[in-house]
Design a protein around this nucleic acid. Structure first.
Lengths: 221, 221
DNA sequence: AACCGCTTGTGAACGCAGGAACAAAGTCGC
DNA sequence: GCGACTTTGTTCCTGCGTTCACAAGCGGTT
């Protein structure tokens, strides 16, 4: 394995995932070639930045022509590690958890839920997207049996840390956390935080600032 | 209005929202003082970075003592513009949209939904969290009546752009987009993208890279 | 009243990401 | 077969974000 992997910046990885989504759409639409300008436009980024991102994979385009859609798609999928679908477990089957379990987009993008867990007895046993909701007591067992390495936490904030502890103890190495708390995970475990309130508050700030700027212009004028 | 607003970096704004959440929790727990170290630990960031973030608000701590919880909380809330709750509209009441509409966390953090919209006739009329689902035809009317400036898109990808167009035409200036497409919005409109698949794919890449690194160590050893 | 420990706030250096401009390379037309 | 055009891949540069380390300031104590 002499793969030249001089480490890809995380920001680039996130954009590669976006390019991959666009490329899948283009391939399904029958397109065979695409230029960096068009791809960048569809992904909402700068063409030069896109080419720089792709350069981390080595040369994969043809000068004067562009990129071959299917080839580039497969290459990005391989680099991201989503060539075949990866098993994930989901803890917390409330409104958000149900939405995530039902979201078809995951299945088509290289992920499948192999276990849904909740602590509330009245939720256990329900079926969502063809899967039964199990009690959290079975978590270790399922993680071991399915070799799941990715866990998603969609529980209330006050139990998120204990769920995180259980997941890592069971062998999960990557966690996507929707609960509004900072998780404390052991070294070697990657945690990504998605906080919906934070996103809205950033928007509120930008909107307020825009309003203030407009006022300033008005006063200045 | 001689407010010294030398512009706050966006990354800092996102963290301020996290600090605010922690501070609200501390205040509810009866705490009156907190140090930068403790606050940083609870927020999952570096203490020095936290102090630098807060320095954008001007001096707001006492040396040798720390920060007063209630004062700092109110100050951040004012800067973020979430002192009183802001009206938002939500388009797309599928699984995810329902989860968002039902999420109590928004209400306690300065946001309230004043309109829920969907195109599917069988969803119109349902009540979620005390609100009726309306047809999208009423969007302009509701935005005008409520002065909503924030719109949330939780529709399928193929209609997200048209929803975005309608929102901006109705006067919405900030958009939070959950649909997996890059939106094209006119200048002066802020768009924030939340893509759940991208988050998972970044985790998959990091996990794969970790595995590869472990192998390398093994080989090297 | 002076000292000491603790914590904030700030200044500087480092590393990284983003953007623009340029050179290399391949294709199409003549 | 040759030239010109198109598009990639790379290089440089500018600016931002993050981190470390130190000086300044306040409270408690003797």
């Amino acid at each position: 394995m002499s793969a030249p992997r001089p480490r890809i910046p995380e920001a680039t990885v996130a954009r590669l995932a976006v390019y991959l989504r666009v490329l899948v759409g283009l391939a399904d639409g029958g397109r065979s070639n695409v230029s960096s300008g068009e791809l960048a436009s569809a992904a909402g980024v700068n063409p030069a930045g896109l080419r720089k991102d792709l350069s981390h994979l080595g040369p994969c385009g043809v000068r004067g022509v562009g990129y071959e859609v299917a080839t580039l798609r497969d290459r990005i999928a391989r680099v991201l590690g989503v060539e075949e679908s990866r098993p994930c477990v989901l803890v917390g089957i409330g409104n958000l958890g149900t939405a995530l379990a039902d979201y078809a987009g995951f299945g088509s993008r290289g992920f499948r839920f192999v276990g849904l867990f909740d602590a509330a007895p009245d939720r256990v046993g329900r079926r969502i997207g063809g899967q039964p909701v199990r009690p959290v007591a079975e978590l270790d067992e399922v993680v071991a049996a399915t070799a799941a390495t990715i866990g998603v936490i969609a529980t209330p904030a006050d139990v998120a840390q204990s769920v995180c502890d259980r997941l890592t103890a069971a062998g999960v190495r990557s966690i996507l956390n929707f609960a509004p708390v900072a998780l404390n995970a052991p070294a070697g475990v990657d945690v990504r935080q998605v906080d919906l309130s934070v996103e809205l508050q950033v928007l509120a700030f930008l909107g307020q600032q825009r309003g203030a700027a407009a006022t300033t212009v008005e006063v200045t004028a």
